[in-house]
């Protein structure tokens, strides 16, 4: 009998220490207990400047609404398994609300069911989740943003000519939408513009550089190049620079970053479309707070986008969304 009690006590102690470990190793919150509502945010990444800006926005909202947040994301935007791991541990902490930028919405589906069964409201951000469970989706309308890039490209090259696209990938929603939004706008509104090639550089600057160079070599009459994210756009800029073709092709990009801002200032790039990462982070937390209080929230919240170029990039409304 005595042995049994000891064993039970031992098991309890073990379980306790394990759960303590589990709590400590995930996220960077101070351990809770301060009474503030808690929003767990699982993002697609944290390394990229874009996610840092989303995080800044989320932290700002956390302050304004007096909630506690954790913000984590996998090492790369292809590491679905790691994100599922993070999602699991976030749910184990029983947050008051959960925000998720899903890398693979199908892989996340069972965990969303768990959230539902625990009555934890879920807010999707950055890209939608193929599920009924999230109460709201806070994201950029990438197709509309890409169409904006196409509109400016068409204007700059005078409505006719050849254009090529360096995209970041052909499988993710953002990759597809930023490609298709651009292509479709051109088809509909600029019949004189031919899209001669679309290639994918994975957002890797070095690969995108070599890729863009080959495209320019293959299409000597190219009038414009469009890069669908920061790495792709910088690849194009590098290629134009290495080939000594500044001014010969019109370059239009997406997102920001120090190198892209510099290229726009120096005239290497015509301009780019930026999302509103701070807005995404802020609206995500704001919506999560509303949802946990049982208030009605909109099903989709478009956080908008801005075209920026040399002329308007220093205006406060634009500048605050341009990360370096």
């Amino acid at each position: 009998m005595r042995r049994k009690i000891m064993a039970a006590a031992g098991a309890a102690a073990l379980a306790l220490s394990l759960s303590a470990c589990g709590g400590g190793s995930t996220g960077n919150e101070s351990g809770g207990g301060d009474g503030k509502p808690y929003v767990a945010i699982v993002s697609k990444g944290f390394q990229h400047q874009f996610w840092q800006a989303v995080k800044d926005g989320a932290e700002k909202a956390a302050k304004d609404y007096n909630v506690r947040i954790t913000f984590q994301g996998p090492d790369t935007e292809s590491n679905v398994a790691q994100q599922i791991e993070m999602l699991t541990s976030a749910l184990n902490k029983n947050p008051d609300a959960l925000a998720l930028a899903a890398l693979d919405s199908k892989a996340a589906a069972p965990l969303l069911e768990t959230a539902k069964s625990k009555d934890i409201p879920v807010v999707a951000f950055d890209s939608g989740v193929d599920s009924e469970i999230p109460v709201s989706t806070v994201a950029t309308d990438n197709k509309a943003a890409a169409a904006e890039a196409a509109k400016h490209m068409a204007k700059r090259i005078g409505g006719e000519g050849q254009v090529a696209i360096v995209a970041h990938d052909q499988t993710s929603k953002s990759g597809k939408h930023r490609r298709d939004g651009f292509v479709n706008w051109m088809k509909k509104n600029a019949p004189g513009i031919e899209i001669v090639d679309i290639q994918y550089g994975g957002g890797d600057q070095l690969k995108s550089t070599d890729l863009a160079k080959a495209m320019i070599q293959a299409n000597p009459k190219l009038d414009g190049l469009y890069g669908t994210n920061e790495g792709s756009a910088i690849g194009i800029v590098n290629a134009v620079q290495e080939l000594g073709m500044k001014g010969d092709v019109t370059v239009v990009g997406f997102d920001s970053g120090k190198a892209q801002l510099k290229a726009i200032r120096s005239g290497l790039m015509a301009g780019a479309v930026t999302q509103n990462p701070i807005g995404i982070g802020y609206k995500t937390v704001e919506t999560a707070v509303k949802a946990m209080k049982g208030k009605d929230v909109k099903q989709t919240i478009d956080t908008g986008y801005y075209w920026y170029d040399k002329e308007n990039m220093d205006k406060p409304k634009i500048a605050e969304n341009l990360y370096k």
Partner: peptide, 16 residues
């Protein structure tokens, strides 16, 4: 490796 990659790109062969 790089001749192959470059050549296929020049020919506009899809990435896949």
């Amino acid at each position: 490796m790089s001749v192959l990659t470059n050549g296929l790109r020049i020919m506009s062969i899809p990435q896949e």
